[in-house]
Computed example of a mutant assay.
Amino acid sequence: MRERSGAVENRRLPSYGAGEIDVPYVVHGTDEVIARDTYWEEHSHPTHELLWNLRGASTATTGARVWTITPSVGLWIPAGTPHSGWTPAGTWHHAAQFSVHAVPAIADTTVAVEVTPLLRLLLERLNTDGLDRESRARTEAVVLDLLAPAPVELLLRIPESALLEPIVAAVRADPADDTTLAAWAARLGVSTRTITRAFRAQTGLGFSQWSTAARVQHAITLLSVGEEIEEVAERVGYHSASAFGAVFRRVTGMSPGRFRVQ
């Protein structure tokens, strides 16, 4: 079901347990150029799912974790895992479903997958008409050999504490927000140590590290639609492209240019 409201499209999909439906394929791919900003309400598949984009960046949320999906970093979601998603207009969205009876999960939990040029070509080949059974089987076998967790995860853990909710909302609404830890502590009537402990307990990061990760996640989305690196740096709160680039590499292990559409 699709419900259109204003500029955002809501999509509802059913929720299935792992293997609840016996599918007649090993790997089945779909792709779509998303015409308008789209929110995918929480759902789950009877199959394992690999999400990636040929163009643009999107996000998928599992519990309190928000994953960024790009042309080079995809996301493996094990069968039966509840997840929701956000896909901006213009994204060329790809999804591949894997039979739980024919394909073992590459991990017990949601995990980032490096979408190499070879893996991308093979997945696109499986999505073409006219592929005979033998050719399909060979291609599927190579795809399964290539699937592996990525060395880098584009992941932001969202703290669920009511105390931290105003901070999270402010940074996600405006990544350039430069409110300091001391200012937040004064505003919320607690000590800086209390905020730091809450962030570390729920995300594994301190306030500053978490804010940086949130800015980088937003920057990836802007870069993936072709925004200039200098403009992106300013929009996420950095005074120079070089400072932004250094932070971006530290968080993602990659340069901003890798994510930018030329």
Rank of each mutant, 00 (worst) to 15 (best):
H28G: 09
T116G: 10
A198N: 04
V142D: 04
P104Q: 11
H218G: 02
G226E: 08
G206W: 15
A57G: 03
V236W: 06
G29K: 03
T38A: 07
N53A: 08
T87K: 02
P159V: 10
R193M: 13
A7D: 15
A201N: 07
A107R: 12
T179P: 03
A169L: 14
A96H: 15
R125F: 05
R215T: 00
T70Y: 01
R249S: 09
E9A: 13
T128N: 02
T192C: 01
T128G: 00
D37N: 14
R133W: 14
P149Q: 11
P24F: 04
E41Y: 13
P175N: 07
D22S: 14
P46I: 04
A233Y: 03
T194H: 03
V225C: 12
D37H: 13
T128F: 01
Y39K: 14
V113T: 02
L126N: 08
E165I: 00
R125M: 02
I167E: 05
V115W: 03
G130N: 04
H45C: 04
V216L: 13
L146N: 04
D108T: 09
A233L: 11
R187E: 07
V171F: 06
L164R: 10
D145K: 13
H48Y: 08
G29Q: 07
G257D: 10
E9T: 14
A186R: 03
G85A: 13
G257L: 00
P104S: 07
T62G: 14
E41M: 11
P46N: 07
G245C: 04
E153G: 01
A185W: 06
S161P: 14
V115S: 00
W67M: 09
H101T: 02
E227C: 03
T180P: 06
E228A: 15
L223F: 04
S191Q: 00
Y39D: 08
G189N: 01
F207V: 12
E227V: 00
D129I: 07
T68C: 09
T91H: 10
P71Y: 01
H239C: 10
L119N: 03
A60W: 10
S242V: 15
A112F: 11
V115A: 01
Y25A: 02
